[in-house]
Write a protein that binds this DNA or RNA. Structure first.
Lengths: 264, 264
DNA sequence: CGACGTGTTGATTCCTGTCAATACTCGTGG
DNA sequence: CCACGAGTATTGACAGGAATCAACACGTCG
């Protein structure tokens, strides 16, 4: 377990801002920020960052905590700095569907709306860089660099959502699992610069979270992972650590086009 | 059948721009345009419209025609002026999933990308207001009104895509059909100002298109429509004309929250 | 040790897909 | 005028894949 320097907030308690020092983020200011060149602030100049700095504060959550509930009042928007969060929807009878997977640099919240449309949950320990909503909106209207970057990010998310819709609507359970593993493997490769073979990484999601991502039950997820393992498409050490001996073999199982559209 | 004044283009033929007059659009310029206040140009001032006017041209397609194929080069972006188009993805073995339903005022194409990511098909006769991509991108960088509106529209689309993901991943066939009919009924009510009971309208999609929207087969769509009819949730005249005697009853079948989040 | 969270596996059900036959509408052409 | 075909839709029989219900394994933590 990591040190308990990351504080725990109950969602109905008043949350207090922290300074960078308190959080032990590992960086001092925006120029050292790990998401500096990918987040909503990516295009900002030094003077623009200074303005952002005025309205920002850090907040952290422990794995499993809810960041906001659908329908809650949200007085901030935020960027994920580290960790993973999920966006999800729940029906009255408890069926839930994940509708977004938020990774470092991803944006949470919607300018112009003060009510959360989805549940946001931290699936790992999570640090977010929050901006007070009103000043952020004002700044968006004044500094095109932010609005431009946000548009670009939103268009990317929309594309991803549409790929995801194909998966949910038309893929078999086996194809869904293969697709998810391929997505995670690709992302891991870009983060760690590990483009080699075999690819090795940890699944950052529980079976239950995977089932919510894929529109399956957790039993089906477990069965299909076992099947892919039995067929030699993946190898498992423990429950989470995956090795992919032949990435093309995995891609063949996803049902996607041979050339994929992605660079591998 | 409408007059054949709307010209037909084969997708591999050179497409020629048309003037407003040729197309018999029923309006003379942007200020009379039916989508003036909802499309990407909604926030533009008169002088900005004048610039847009320089780079725009109209194009029309007959029902069933493909507007662009996924992977095609696209030298324009566009707004739907009238008619309905769909965005869809197809897997190698022919399985297809609709990922967007484009109604009047909706935007097609992505600034900064010259290759279509999805198939765009006209499901009814369709008129689009096209902008040459390069000058449009230049203009976006210079006139915040366009970028602002596009961001707003893209965020709306992302929200809609996420609702759709819940439908695809977790709803039963019956709930999917009820949801689709409710969506169409709501939209029809906003267009025709017909908020009354019973609601009556035509389904603008074939059974096959509905199945692609919902991630079902057309047989299942047909069966569930028959079932809803048998149970008195909807009434049918012919194949397409629907009457909803009790809208709340229909909403109860969608699986959504009782209060819906939508104003009815 | 026992409780709990997480994950695997088995038996069974049932919803939806698949394959197939038929009906209806609309245009076309003999 | 009617036969014919194409496109659209309905319905039935059947199979199969995923959900459901249930038992059990494993590791961690108190």
């Amino acid at each position: 377990m990591t040190l308990k320097l990351i504080r725990h907030f109950d969602s109905d308690q008043e949350k207090t801002p922290m300074s960078i020092q308190e959080l032990k983020l590992g960086f001092k200011d925006c120029s050292d920020c790990p998401i500096r060149h990918r987040a909503v602030c990516a295009r900002c100049e030094a003077d623009e960052l200074a303005v952002l700095d005025e309205i920002k504060y850090y907040r952290s959550y422990e794995a499993g905590q809810t960041v906001v509930w659908s329908g809650d009042h949200m007085d901030f928007v935020a960027s994920v700095v580290s960790g993973i969060a999920t966006l999800s929807q729940t029906m009255e009878d408890g069926r839930t569907q994940m509708v977004g997977l938020l990774l470092p640099s991803d944006f949470v919240g919607r300018p112009g709306r003060d009510e959360a449309a989805f549940d946001v949950t931290a699936t790992t320990n999570l640090v977010m860089c929050c901006f007070r909503r009103k000043p952020f909106e004002k700044m968006m209207a004044e500094t095109p660099h932010i609005a431009q970057r946000l548009l670009e990010m939103t268009l990317d998310e929309l594309d991803a959502a549409r790929e995801w819709m194909l998966l949910l609507g038309r893929k078999t359970a086996r194809e869904k699992i293969a697709s998810l593993i391929a997505i995670i493997a690709r992302r891991d490769a870009t983060l760690t610069k590990g483009g080699g073979t075999p690819k090795t990484f940890d699944l950052p999601l529980t079976r239950d979270a995977m089932s919510n991502y894929l529109g399956l039950t957790l039993e089906t997820v477990s069965r299909q992972i076992s099947a892919l393992k039995k067929d030699g498409v993946i190898q498992l050490e423990g429950k989470r650590h995956v090795t992919i001996p032949d990435f093309q073999r995995l891609l063949d199982e996803t049902g996607d086009d041979a050339d994929g559209g992605y660079l591998v």
